[in-house]
Simulated assay, not measured.
Amino acid sequence: MRFRIDDAIYISVNDANFLENAIYTYSRGAILYGLIGALAVVIFLLIISVLKPWGKRKKDND
């Protein structure tokens, strides 16, 4: 993912018509898809940790 961010920054700084460059728009789209995927995983983990559909842990009394 890091190389896509570096490519997008390099193209946006060095290319005058970066919005017309297919590589930039692809990199930008890939970054957005990655961001959406990462947020979805974090939200899923947050919800699953709050709801705990498997129930609470039982305490073992030895």
Results as ranks from 00 to 15, higher is better:
residue 48 I to F: 02
residue 17 N to L: 11
residue 17 N to K: 05
residue 42 V to N: 09
residue 17 N to T: 04
residue 24 Y to Q: 04
residue 45 L to P: 03
residue 33 Y to Q: 14
residue 6 D to M: 01
residue 44 F to L: 15
residue 23 I to E: 04
residue 1 M to A: 11
residue 57 R to C: 01
residue 12 S to Y: 01
residue 36 I to H: 03
residue 54 W to C: 02
residue 22 A to H: 02
residue 48 I to H: 06
residue 62 D to W: 12
residue 26 Y to W: 08
residue 60 D to T: 01
residue 22 A to G: 00
residue 31 I to D: 00
residue 31 I to G: 09
residue 41 V to D: 12
residue 20 E to T: 04
residue 52 K to V: 10
residue 8 A to L: 12
residue 19 L to R: 13
residue 62 D to K: 03
residue 18 F to S: 00
residue 4 R to Q: 06
residue 50 V to E: 08
residue 48 I to A: 15
residue 29 G to Y: 05
residue 28 R to V: 12
residue 14 N to W: 02
residue 53 P to T: 04
residue 23 I to K: 10
residue 46 L to F: 14
residue 44 F to S: 15
residue 37 G to I: 13
residue 57 R to M: 04
residue 54 W to A: 11
residue 31 I to L: 15
residue 20 E to M: 06
residue 31 I to Q: 09
residue 11 I to A: 06
residue 3 F to H: 08
residue 24 Y to E: 04
residue 5 I to W: 03
residue 2 R to H: 10
residue 46 L to Q: 08
residue 52 K to D: 09
residue 40 A to N: 06
residue 28 R to H: 07
residue 32 L to N: 03
residue 34 G to Q: 12
residue 16 A to R: 02
residue 1 M to E: 14
residue 20 E to F: 05
residue 27 S to F: 00
residue 61 N to M: 05
residue 48 I to G: 05
residue 56 K to C: 01
residue 43 I to T: 15
residue 41 V to F: 15
residue 9 I to A: 10
residue 38 A to S: 15
residue 33 Y to E: 15
residue 1 M to C: 04
residue 60 D to L: 04
residue 57 R to V: 04
residue 27 S to D: 15
residue 48 I to N: 14
residue 15 D to L: 03
residue 28 R to F: 07
residue 6 D to L: 15
residue 20 E to I: 02
residue 3 F to I: 02
residue 38 A to M: 15
residue 41 V to K: 15
residue 9 I to G: 03
residue 38 A to N: 10
residue 19 L to A: 06
residue 20 E to A: 10
residue 13 V to L: 13
residue 20 E to Q: 10
residue 58 K to Q: 08
residue 47 I to V: 15
residue 21 N to R: 01
residue 7 D to K: 12
residue 16 A to L: 09
residue 35 L to V: 14
residue 47 I to S: 12
residue 11 I to P: 09
residue 56 K to R: 08
residue 60 D to P: 01
residue 47 I to C: 11
residue 58 K to P: 02
residue 60 D to M: 00
residue 55 G to P: 03
residue 29 G to K: 04
residue 48 I to C: 08
residue 43 I to A: 08
residue 14 N to L: 05
residue 3 F to E: 14
residue 5 I to E: 05
residue 11 I to R: 01
residue 17 N to R: 13
residue 9 I to Q: 13
residue 50 V to M: 07
residue 28 R to L: 07
residue 27 S to Y: 00
residue 59 K to N: 12
residue 20 E to H: 05
residue 58 K to E: 11
residue 39 L to K: 11
residue 16 A to C: 02
residue 59 K to Y: 00
residue 4 R to N: 10
residue 29 G to A: 03
residue 44 F to E: 08
residue 47 I to T: 11
residue 15 D to S: 11
residue 22 A to V: 05
residue 42 V to Y: 14
residue 48 I to E: 10
residue 26 Y to A: 13
residue 43 I to R: 00
residue 21 N to D: 14
residue 27 S to T: 06
residue 24 Y to P: 02
residue 48 I to D: 15
residue 1 M to L: 06
residue 8 A to T: 11
residue 50 V to D: 06
residue 32 L to A: 10
residue 12 S to P: 01
residue 39 L to Q: 11
residue 35 L to N: 12
